[in-house]
Amino acid sequence: ITDLMDNFAIYFGHVVSNTFYPLPTRAIGVGSAFEGWSPREEDVVYSVLVPLNPPQRHTFHLEPELDTAGQRPGRNFRVRVELECTCTREQQWENVLCFLHHPEEQLRRNQDPSLLHTLCTDSYLDVHKTARWFYQLVGATWPALPQSHNWHLVLLPSTRSCQFRVTNGNESFWIEMLFGVREGDTDIFVSSQPREVYTPRTTWPETYAVAEMKFFRHIARQAPPDSMHLKCLQFFTHVLLGIGFSTYTMKTIVMHLLGVIPMSRWRRRDFLQQLLYISEMLRSCVEERCLNHFIVGNRRLPEGISLPPEVQMAETRSLFYRLKQDPAAHSRAMSEYHEL
């Protein structure tokens, strides 16, 4: 998968260089498949986040959307696209026309349209348009990739990502290419991955997937060979299939416990004890209607995980905020816990 994504990145670069489309950079593997705890090994989805840089003569500005409830554990953004004045460069490059200061008719005749006219809606980068463009990009570059000689590509429908399967008769891999914009030089991005059932097409939710992947990588470096921390997480995600608690809830609980319980106590002999710890923490969080987000407001992350100050210093947000707002939801959650 990594080799395939690296090859895509190389050919994406060839295709979009010297255009006014976003510049995809090397994909980052995120989520359970790359963290080592996929709930269902027979149907693994390999999610990768493709960072996008603005094309030449454009800039990206991240604008946070107002959270009227003030409860959500993650922020939503819009990516405003602005054009740069290139008048001073026209003397150096004859074919450079300034998007801001040349007549539209002249621009139409002599230059490709700006990003504002291709993948944007009302000056904001449009997730749906970007996804369609990614599908075109994957389809156009696939024949040039070495993998195309032995593998078959099948594109799968999605409005907020580019999903496809590659098969060679014996093996099959389901890949989801998400795309995002990095917040500064940190490990936090805004991405195309939706957080709610309905996410507007110009909304880019903040994602902590890269920081979480780096946390699991940090833990793996410290873990003894027979560490069962991933097996514990995998066990609970299996148990919870069809029950109301999300896999992200269990992942968050395990990350919190990994942050406080020494790795020497996650060995094979400790497996049952750690399952009890996880179960007990879930019960306690449901009873108290509070499960703090692991990344937002966490000032004790390992060195090497970079957060924007407004994320690191933020007030902690609970994944269970709806349980406080809705007594019926809290009752259901307690019942679901007792069903485990």
Rank of each mutant, 00 (worst) to 15 (best):
N95D: 03
T19L: 02
A211L: 05
W151F: 10
D185I: 04
V154T: 06
R221F: 11
E303I: 02
T2K: 14
Q273I: 06
P146K: 05
A314V: 03
T118I: 08
I10G: 09
S335D: 04
L97K: 10
F164I: 04
Y248A: 02
Q56W: 04
H102P: 13
I305P: 02
Q222I: 07
V44L: 03
T159S: 15
V138P: 01
R132E: 05
V138Y: 13
A329C: 03
H128K: 03
L155E: 11
V79I: 11
F173E: 03
T121S: 15
Q222L: 14
G70K: 14
N298A: 01
M250R: 07
E41K: 11
T19G: 07
Y135C: 12
G36K: 00
H149M: 03
L272P: 12
Q71G: 13
A314W: 02
A328W: 12
G242T: 09
I253C: 05
S47A: 10
P22F: 03
H238E: 12
R332A: 10
S306T: 09
E41Q: 10
A27H: 06
A27Q: 15
L66Y: 14
P54F: 15
W151G: 07
P309Y: 01
T203S: 08
A140I: 15
S172E: 05
E212T: 12
E206K: 05
E212I: 09
L107R: 09
L275R: 09
Y337R: 15
Y248M: 13
L145Q: 03
E105H: 09
P54K: 09
P64T: 00
